[in-house]
Simulated assay, not measured.
Amino acid sequence: MNILVFGKDGQLGKAFQKLFDSMHSTEVHIQYVGREQCDLSNSAVLLDFLRQSKPDLIINAAAYTAVDKAETEVEVAFAINAKAPELMALYAAEHGATLLHYSTDYVFDGNKEGFYVEADPRNPLGIYGKTKAAGEEAIEKVFSIPNQGQYAILRTSWVYGDGSNFIRTILRLAKEREELKVIADQYGVPTSAEWLAQVSFNLALDQHFNLRKFSSGIYHAVPAGETTWHGLARLAAQAAIDVGIALMAGSEAIRPIPAVEYPLPAPRPTNSRMDTAKLRKAIESIGDMSKLEHCKRLWGDEVQAYVARLAQDGLI
């Protein structure tokens, strides 16, 4: 079994490495790939890398994620977020491999009431969302022709893990300032990179690293529940206080503001909530209740555990 993990330096890539390292399988060759090993914006380099590596499983945790910079760096954003996934899909379809690709709530415009389902039409607002939507469409097109491969596009949102992210920024600012103002009218689901890596593993692999058969398509992959950026900030601050971290701005000092008071170059969807019934059904079919329970974990429980780990590691 050969596994390629693209995006080794990102939060999800690091979560996969931590997960795989904990399993100590000698039957599997895993290669973690960053830009130094393979520049995803260069199609020829990527194709050559895939042919030489001969992966059975491609995990594309890499992406151009600079939402605001994408408005001006259009070409490179499309190369990494759309063309590279297409080439990975072409390899998987031709060689009978499995592709796990990660997408985003930004493929939606955020105007829907309630939770988005996988079949809802894409209507991205900014360049970042347009590139990720194009990547999804390219993968679907490749696999629409009969082939021996399989794929899952896992749409997720508000990811945090080992690296820079919203939670760590809020906690840093809360130690420096007596009051914070955070957007309270954008809704979504914070997603732990470790949670997402484990869910992905459960969908695609068994405990012996044998590939599972699953229905190819898009899956919404976020923990249970919903919140706003303001709600996330307040919970993170309270979680830090609960484990003994002194903050200048406690949860009550984090004030709600509308998005219009914090303008950014790229538009954001107001509603990023995504229904996960399809993913839960796929995990349930495995027949292991512990895997289903992991899939159903609440976003707030995941955030509290994450903040506690940050405190334990001296990172707050």
Rank of each mutant, 00 (worst) to 15 (best):
V303G: 05
V182H: 01
K18I: 11
A62H: 04
A174H: 05
F20H: 06
F108W: 10
L12M: 09
A77Y: 01
K181T: 10
N271G: 08
A119N: 13
R122D: 11
Y32H: 08
F6Q: 03
Y102A: 01
Q52V: 06
D105Y: 07
K141S: 12
L40E: 03
V45Q: 15
A93G: 04
W299F: 15
Y91G: 07
S103C: 06
G161S: 03
L235Y: 12
A282L: 03
Q11M: 15
P121W: 00
Q17P: 11
N111H: 11
R309Q: 15
K112R: 15
C38T: 06
D9Q: 13
R51L: 15
Q312G: 14
C295I: 05
S144Q: 11
N42L: 08
G300H: 15
A82C: 01
M274D: 04
A133P: 04
R268T: 11
P124Y: 04
G163K: 05
S164V: 10
D185Q: 04
A221D: 09
L247M: 05
F166A: 01
R122H: 12
A237N: 03
R255P: 01
S192N: 03
S290N: 13
V107A: 02
K181Y: 13
A204F: 09
T228Q: 06
E71M: 10
T227I: 12
R280I: 11
K291P: 06
I218F: 01
I59D: 06
H294L: 15
A152E: 07
V189R: 02
V5R: 03
E261W: 09
